[in-house]
Simulated assay, not measured.
Amino acid sequence: MSQYLIPKSAVVFEEEIKKSRFITYLSHVENITQARNFWQELRVLHPAARHHCWAAVAGAPDDSQQYGFSDDGEPAGTAGKPMLSALQGSRIGEISAVVVRYYGGIQLGTGGLVRAYGNGVQQALKQLETDVKILRQSYSLVCDYGQINWLQLLYEKYNIVIESQDFTDKVWFQLAISEDNRGKFEREIQERSAGQLIIEKIRR
C-alpha cells in the first residue's frame, strides 16, 4: 500500500439511545501508544461515564499489527469489535475511535450494544475529513550544479519531497520518493544524464 487516507481533523458525534448517552470521538494517531493515550485522555475528560470503549487502526489500513480495541466493561464483543469493524470498513488509516457511554438505566442487550457502538463510529466517519498520506522512502542523489534545474522539474513531476540538501563541490539531495514513482524517476534521470546519476536508498 503506497498511499491511504488519514484523518484531517478530529470529530465528535453524540446520540442518545434509551436514555444512555453515547459520545463518539475520532482522532488521528500514528501508533497504538498514541491511541491508548487518546483513550486515557477521554477517561480523564469523562470520569463519570460508565464505559470508555475504544478501537484503533493506528497504522496503514492493512497493517493488523496496529489494530487494537477494548470493550471496557461492556459484554465481550459488543463494543470494541464493532467499532474496529467500522474503522476497517472505512479503509482509513492512523485513526482511533473512543465511544464514551453514560448509562441511562435501561439495558440495550448485546444486539443493541453492537448496533450502538458500531453505528456511532459509522456516523462519526461520515463527518470526517481526510487527507491522503503517501508513503515515501528516503534516497540520496549527488549531482553537478548544471543538473539542478532539470532535476527540480522532475521532483515536481514525480511529487518528490526534498528532505535536505547540501551544496559543496557537488550538490547532495536527500529525497523522499514514493514507490509508485521511484522506477519512472530513476529511468528518466539515467536517460537524461547518460547513466551518470543514480539514487541510493538510505537505510534507517
Score class of each variant (00 low, 15 high):
I17C: 08
K18V: 01
K19T: 03
K19R: 14
K19Q: 15
S20Y: 09
S20E: 07
R21K: 14
R21V: 04
R21I: 08
R21L: 11
F22L: 06
I23Y: 01
I23R: 09
I23F: 02
I23T: 06
T24A: 14
T24H: 06
T24E: 04
Y25Q: 04
Y25N: 11
Y25A: 03
Y25F: 15
L26Y: 06
L26W: 03
L26T: 03
S27V: 01
S27D: 08
S27M: 00
H28C: 10
H28L: 12
H28Q: 12
V29I: 06
E30T: 07
N31C: 12
N31K: 09
N31P: 11
N31M: 10
I32Y: 03
I32R: 07
T33N: 11
T33P: 00
T33V: 08
T33R: 07
Q34G: 02
Q34I: 01
A35R: 05
R36P: 00
R36C: 00
N37Q: 15
N37V: 08
N37I: 13
N37H: 13
N37R: 13
W39V: 06
W39K: 09
W39N: 05
Q40M: 09
Q40F: 04
Q40C: 01
E41P: 08
E41I: 09
L42G: 12
L42I: 07
L42M: 07
L42P: 09
R43W: 02
R43Q: 14
V44H: 14
V44F: 13
V44Y: 13
H46I: 03
H46G: 09
P47Q: 11
P47D: 11
A48K: 13
A48G: 02
A48T: 13
A49P: 06
H51D: 04
H51T: 05
H51S: 02
H52Q: 03
H52E: 03
H52K: 04
C53P: 03
W54L: 05
W54T: 05
W54E: 00
W54C: 11
W54F: 12
A55C: 13
A55L: 07
A55G: 13
A56K: 10
A56Q: 11
A56G: 10
V57Q: 13
V57E: 07
V57S: 06
A58K: 03
A58F: 03
G59L: 08
G59R: 04
G59S: 05
G59F: 07
G59E: 02
G59V: 04
A60Q: 10
P61S: 04
P61N: 09
D62R: 00
D63K: 08
S64M: 03
S64H: 09
Q66E: 15
Y67V: 07
F69R: 05
F69C: 13
F69G: 01
S70D: 10
S70R: 12
